[in-house]
């Protein structure tokens, strides 16, 4: 049976430290931002947002929400719009792959993504002199003028597959394939694995009563779920829910 890789992120454990963002950038050869870069022009495949309950001081409550490509399973918004097949869902893994070498930079996929999880290379990639020696050989740097996004550290899946193939195995050892954000999270807030394997922790957690997915009513079946025991955090899932929650609170 093909795999369906997915994630569950526990928002009650996330401290917003930023390890995932940085580890992701190191792993995936994402260049440092050039001078003048902003949170709207930078590239952070994995970005931690701060969400609050909308109340003023001192009733404000916040939560940190890591957001990356949700690897939508159905009607994947970025796949159908790409004019030249630079994006696709891998039927073997469920991972939404983006091929920067095929991309012409029309940014239609970025407009189409409800999670704003796609990033454009507004600048040429530049590392300080000598630092290109520290790049990860398993991921190719992108050029200016193309879109890119999280692919669950696909380079690591390659490594795991290669190891399996060298041993003559068809299947990889799940322990060999852990994305950088999962590996670097100090509080182990992120769990990764095969959603098709009912015994996997990720499959169990995604069915937890604390679990929810953002914008699930769009019908894109994202493969990244979130956990929280706080009702207001769960109500962030979509606007109708948030409105209902607010009305309920007002009575």
């Amino acid at each position: 049976m093909p795999a369906r890789y997915g994630m569950v992120i526990d928002l009650d454990r996330c401290t917003g430290c930023g390890n995932c963002t940085v580890a992701c950038a190191v792993e995936n050869n994402i260049p440092p931002g050039p001078p003048g870069v902003t949170d709207r022009t930078g590239i952070t495949w994995m970005r931690v947002y701060e969400a609050d309950n909308g109340e003023g001081f001192p009733e404000t409550q916040s939560a940190f929400v890591p957001v990356m490509c949700m690897q939508c399973e159905e009607h994947t918004p970025c796949v159908s719009v790409c004019p030249q097949n630079a994006v696709e869902v891998d039927p073997e893994t469920g991972i939404v792959g983006q091929i920067p070498e095929r991309c012409l930079g029309c940014r239609y996929c970025m407009a189409a993504c409800p999670y704003h999880a796609r990033y454009f290379n507004w600048w040429d990639p530049k590392w300080p002199e000598g630092m290109e020696k520290t790049l990860n050989p398993d991921v190719s740097p992108r050029m200016r003028g193309v879109a890119e996004k999280c692919n669950f550290c696909h380079g690591r899946l390659h490594t795991a597959r290669e190891k399996a193939a060298a041993a003559g195995n068809a299947a990889i050892d799940p322990a060999d394939y852990v994305p950088a954000c999962v590996e670097s999270c100090p509080t182990q807030a992120i769990v990764f694995g095969d959603l098709n394997d009912p015994a996997s922790e990720v499959a169990k957690l995604s069915r937890d009563e604390r679990a929810f997915r953002f914008l699930s009513r769009l019908g894109t079946e994202p493969k990244v779920s979130y956990l929280s025991s706080r009702a207001w955090v769960r109500s962030l899932a979509d606007r109708v829910l948030a409105r209902d929650q607010k009305e309920e609170a007002r009575g």
């Binding site: 930023g18 963002t21 940085v22 022009t41 952070t44 970005r47 947002y49």
Partner: peptide
């Protein structure tokens, strides 16, 4: 690291 722009400039973190 110059990559810390990810936390400071490229996100609101």
């Amino acid at each position: 690291s110059p990559l810390m722009t990810k936390l400071y400039q490229e996100s609101g973190l």
